[in-house]
Design a protein around this nucleic acid. Sequence first.
DNA 1: GGATGTATAATTGTATACAAGAAAACAGGA
DNA 2: TCCTGTTTTCTTGTATACAATTATACATCC
Lengths: 217, 217
Amino acid sequence: MREFKTTSLADQVFEKLENDIIQGIYPKGEILTELKLVDRMGVSRTPIREALRRLEQERLIADTGKGSVVLGITEEDLLDIMNIRQRIEGLAAYYATVNITDEGRKELAHIVDLQDFYFSKHDAENLRKVDDQFHDAICYLGKRTVITDTLVPLHRKTRRYRKLSLEDRGRTSLTMKEHRAIYEAIVSGNAELAMDLTTQHIANAKEHMIERLKNNG
Amino acid sequence: MREFKTTSLADQVFEKLENDIIQGIYPKGEILTELKLVDRMGVSRTPIREALRRLEQERLIADTGKGSVVLGITEEDLLDIMNIRQRIEGLAAYYATVNITDEGRKELAHIVDLQDFYFSKHDAENLRKVDDQFHDAICYLGKRTVITDTLVPLHRKTRRYRKLSLEDRGRTSLTMKEHRAIYEAIVSGNAELAMDLTTQHIANAKEHMIERLKNNG
DNA sequence: GGATGTATAATTGTATACAAGAAAACAGGA
DNA sequence: TCCTGTTTTCTTGTATACAATTATACATCC
């Protein structure tokens, strides 16, 4: 979406494995060996190794010396992620407001419009993707790499949960109102408001998540 | 310090390059090619590549397609790092207090004692290392991997700045008082206090940093 | 002298070969 | 049957080989 270099095999393997682990396709505790993945993916060990090392750095897997064990995302992780986002993402929105360009304003406008569109279509999968784009865009538009690098991986890790959440129409309709309010604050240049609305939005999402996990546990 | 597996060549190359970049030995903008590093480090391309990929993920270098350009740490990065730490590190201290074990209490006690020792020796380099250990220990003792994984890389990135800061006796003596107060709160089980003291400690460090950068700029 | 096309260098991405260490399988003896 | 020592297999870490791409240098033509 943002990069135009042709993706290498290592990138492709990484993205596939990352998504499969986050989605729970590889259950926690499963052992992945390089050779098994070579067979399954049809590429050599070199790109497999590179992908595994990146997954390790994101702590989605851990090296055991004899294969990599899948760690996945725990409920504790989800809670910590939301606590961190609640404290940082407002900062991202602040910088997004300060540093946004006309092009960025258009991009963000497009994203919130797409959200309405997919909501009307009851398309939870695409809603999740656009939700990703919205929160990631706020990071990128702020142009502060440390903040972006902190938040974007956390967004990816909540992918599975958010997909579930966006199947709840009542909650989603609220989410979208909040997103639009944040969007308005950003494009109108009210950085403090954008920051506060974003913090509140994440706090709400966190509360909703806690409720949900409690009922399912 | 925490892991006991024999470090691979890739680990060694990574640690050396990471430190050299953070310390500014490789200036921003310098182009590192795999072959040059093979010559300089005396190992093959495989571990070099692995190290470069990790540095890329930490955004200390960026791939240009024809060598990797050194990015390093900007003053903007430093400010963002302190803003993030100010918002998160209290959380780490909270969990450290809640989850600490007797062994952890001993470890932390040892660290604060070492601090006094190196302070009395005017040993800024070791003071910096122990400062690292103190803040990293609070993360590890909390046993919340997402929080740890968020903060520890940020500690590493401020290594160079903190070394400078710890050469300032007045500031360092304050730092050490604050550390000891945090330590007391943690071992006495007062999680809320540990959290507040930590947040305040980072806020103070941030203010001190801003002052310092202003005077040098 | 300048532009252009070609050959050459440099650089990375990927695949594979080799070695070392650890675990598992297995054979033999009590 | 159970223990023990040995062999085999599995898995990784590292080095190297090969291919493709891109930049550079160079020669040739005008």
